[in-house]
Each structure stands twice: as C-alpha cells, then as structure tokens.
C-alpha cells in the first residue's frame, strides 16, 4: 500500500527563487488497484513519484510504502518498490541477463532464488532469445522488457511507473500496459503517471489530477464523470485544471 501524507517538495531556483514542485499532496493507493496520476508537464507528477521511490527526499510530509517511511527507511522502501520510467535506462555494456542479475543481487537475493526468479521472468516476458545480448544492441521493445524484468526481479509489492509508454511504438506500449494490468492482477499496489487518456480509462481504478504541485481532484473514473457531468476524461481534466491554468497564464 502507498500512503502519501502531505507530501511536499520545494526546490531553490537561482532565477525563480523557491519553487513548490509538490505541495502537500495526500492520497492512498490500495493493493490490487491501479492509481493514475494525471497532469500536464511540470504539474508535479514525476517529483511525486520520485519521492515515493525515495530517489528524492520530501521537504515536508512523508509517505508510507508497504509499512516503511520514505524519510526514515528509504533503503527498505526501495526494496519494496519497482520503479520504471522513461528516464531509467539500461547499462549499455551489460547483457539483458546481467542487468537483471545486478538488480537482483542489489536487492539481496541469493543466487539460487535469483536464478529461479530470472528463469521465471524471462519465460513470462519471452526474453530468452536475447538474454545474452548486450543492452546497447537491443531494440526498444527488448529494452523495455529488460527494464520490466529489472523492476520485477525482487518481486516488489509496490510498482511505480512514471510515463512508462512515452515515446514508445504501439506494440511496445501494449507490452507495458499488459504488464501494468498483470501487476494489479497479482495483487500489487500500482501507481502510474501518463498523458494518454485511453491508458487511464483502460487501467486505472482510482485517478488523481495534479496541477501546480497540488492534488486538485481524486476519485474513481465513474465518480469523476458523475461529479463533473462529463464522460470524456480529457474534458474533465480541462474543467479541473483549466481555471487555474488560465489564471497562471
């Protein structure tokens, strides 16, 4: 489970002074459910997800991931999380198998468990054909599968995806979407951010709309549709974010 409690992040910028990238965001993601975090570029999605993955430290507030506090036990949190984004690249000079093994070992898996886990994942993701190929020689689809295998190797109960399909072709994006849905089916807690409304409509059990670092709206898709009397999710976002965006402009 993920519990964000007044999670905040401020940055100092030489030109613009203090920037509140995330401002007191609170939400909960349940196991076996997918939480979609929606918002424009610079809304605070990536910073929020990075704080949940303990890559960034919150300035105020905290989050509890599977019982561990991100501020107090960041290493334990990371051991319970699989984090995937377009910015999490692969080591070019390692093979696909070495890449996954490396993260398995960093997660403290013993060699027997690691071997078993790798065989299982490589079979599930159909990776055996390229397991010994160096990552810099892999196609985009193969790279994404390797990244997925890297996030799954320690079988984390919580999965965090930051715009995982951005820039991918249709077939590769489908693999990722299928993988996210599979995580939910296996009872994992999933949070992901995206720009693609069809993905949200297809996957998300719960939706949070973020803008200017603040969580403006939250609920199931049905709840949001009912509240805003609007079926189209894109229109709902415009209704929620629009007044603020116009004021900023």
């Amino acid at each position: 489970m993920i519990e964000a409690r007044s999670l905040s992040k401020r940055f100092q910028d030489k030109k613009r002074g203090e920037i509140r990238a995330v401002d007191s965001v609170t939400f909960t993601c349940q196991p076996g459910k997918i939480y979609g975090l929606l918002g424009a570029n610079g809304a605070g999605k990536t910073t929020t997800l990075r704080m949940l993955a303990t890559i960034l430290e919150p300035t105020d507030g905290t989050a509890i991931i599977n019982g561990f506090d991100v501020v107090e036990h960041p290493e334990k949190v990371r051991a319970n999380v699989g984090f995937l984004s377009t910015a999490t690249a692969l080591y070019p000079r390692l093979t696909a198998q070495e890449m996954v093994e490396y993260f398995g070992r960093l997660n403290g898996l013993d060699e027997v468990t690691l071997k078993k886990r790798i065989e299982d994942i490589f079979h599930r993701l159909d990776m055996n054909g390229f397991r010994d190929r160096r990552c810099d020689k892999l196609s985009t689809g193969m790279k994404q599968k390797t990244s997925i295998a890297r996030t799954l190797v320690h079988d984390p109960p919580v999965m965090i995806f930051d715009e995982p399909t951005t820039g991918l072709d249709v077939m590769t994006a489908r693999t990722i979407i299928g993988f996210i849905a599979d995580c939910r089916n296996r009872g994992k807690t999933v949070i992901f951010s995206t720009h693609i409304m069809s993905e949200v409509e297809r996957l998300c059990d719960h939706i949070g709309i973020i803008h200017g670092g603040k969580l403006l709206e939250e609920g199931t898709l049905a709840e949001l549709r009912a509240k805003h009397n609007e079926h189209n999710l894109e229109e709902i976002i415009v209704k929620v974010v629009g007044p603020l965006a116009n004021a900023e402009a």
């Binding site: 890559i55 290493e75 334990k76 990371r78 999380v81 984090f83 690249a89 692969l90 070019p92």
Partner: peptide, 14 residues
C-alpha cells in the same frame, strides 16, 4: 548522460 543514474538510485543499495 546515459540515464542509468536514476535506475541505480531506485535500487535498495545505499
């Protein structure tokens, strides 16, 4: 530059 820094920082290694 290669984008692997964020990958390794998301692992449990201190």
């Amino acid at each position: 530059e290669r984008g692997t820094m964020e990958t390794i920082l998301s692992s449990p290694v201190s």
